[in-house]
């Protein structure tokens, strides 16, 4: 498939006797933000490291840009930007000097790439402060600047908001969204915070104890996990009239000729059913859907949940 940027097949990593990543089949689609969600130690970072060749693969395969990594490193890696854990920079040089070294090594796509990358993350250009004096948040920002320095097609970000303050987190979030929406980049991002991923990602992969439990689009998950009563009847016009007159239902939407969604989940469903039957409207189905995303993750991870 042309549309898949990263594909892993049966990707496995074993350290000694411990299986850290177990037969993971990941599919990151082009131009989307893929959120890898899991608790600490679930195997998120290990998967990213294997994709980037920073950690050897025990078994299985990784394809990036529809090419296997092995043998094509020279062509693939310049097209990826990444931050894994704390990025390594020279402590005695300033942020600008550090990035200039990377720009020289890697090459850039624009004449003033360093200045622009620093501007994007909100760090000063040609500042005198050396890296060792940076705060955790500034270090993280410099790491992000380094990842986007060469305007890569694919970004792999391992918990990029670690150590940032709430405003910084919001900034990074909107910046990642911009990259994806306005500039068509593909992003693979990991996090252990559900609320953060649900604000950002298009697709979600849930990983638990090294196993990929679920891979789906967020829209699909939201659809499956919102609060409403699903009502299927033979005649929606009659049913809606009854609901409006007798149950004073105001918040509903008619989906098609047989389906109505009621957004007030406190309604007495048994009464509704009875009333519909008495009016000769046959009820095909009537069900309450009120799982939240959180409940769902708890279910998927076997009750342990995600922080």
């Amino acid at each position: 498939m042309d549309n898949i940027v990263i594909e892993t097949r049966q990707l496995t990593k074993i350290y000694g006797e411990q299986t850290v990543v177990n037969e993971v089949n990941l599919h990151v689609r082009k131009g989307r933000i893929y959120g890898l969600l899991g608790r600490n130690g679930a195997g998120k970072t290990t998967i990213m490291k294997m994709i980037l060749g920073l950690s050897s693969v025990t078994s299985g395969e990784v394809d990036v840009f529809s090419q296997t990594i092995k043998g094509n490193e020279k062509y693939i890696y310049p097209r990826i930007g990444a931050i894994i854990e704390t990025p390594g920079f020279y402590p005695n040089l300033t942020g600008t000097e550090n990035l200039e070294i990377f720009a020289k090594l890697r090459g850039t796509s624009r004449p003033n790439a360093v200045k622009e990358a620093l501007g994007v993350v909100g760090l000063p250009y040609r500042d005198k402060k050396v890296f060792s004096k940076y705060s955790l948040g500034m270090k993280q920002r410099l790491g992000i600047a380094n990842a986007i320095l060469h305007d890569p097609e694919l970004l792999i970000l391992d918990e990029p908001t670690n150590g940032l303050d709430p405003i910084g987190i919001a900034e990074v979030r909107s910046f990642i969204q911009d990259l994806c929406v306005k500039r068509g980049k593909t992003v693979l991002i990991s996090s252990h915070i559900l609320s953060e991923i649900s604000l950002l990602a298009d697709d979600i992969g849930i990983i638990h104890n090294g196993v990929l439990l679920e891979e789906n689009s967020l829209a699909e998950l939201h659809k499956r996990n919102s609060k409403y009563i699903l009502l299927q009847v033979s005649d929606t016009a009659k049913a809606v009239l009854l609901l409006e007159r007798r149950f004073h239902v105001k918040e509903y939407s008619v989906q098609d000729t047989h389906t109505v969604l009621l957004y007030d989940t406190d309604l007495d469903m048994a009464e509704i059913n009875k009333a519909l039957m008495l009016e000769n409207i046959s009820v095909i189905s009537l069900q309450l859907c009120n799982d939240t995303l959180e409940d769902y993750f708890k279910k998927v991870t076997g009750g342990e949940g995600i922080a």
Binding site: P78, R79, A103, K104, R106, G107, T108, S109, R110, P111, H150, D151, P152, E153, K182, R183, G184, K185
Partner: peptide, 29 residues
């Protein structure tokens, strides 16, 4: 259109690369 050509400051071809990148970027946006 996401592909960029990476070049170093000392390369002879750098202006060509910068210009191609700019064209591709504009098209993409």
């Amino acid at each position: 259109l996401n592909r960029r050509i990476l070049t170093r400051k000392s390369d002879m071809t750098k202006t060509i690369c910068y210009n191609i990148n700019e064209i591709v970027m504009n098209n993409q946006s």
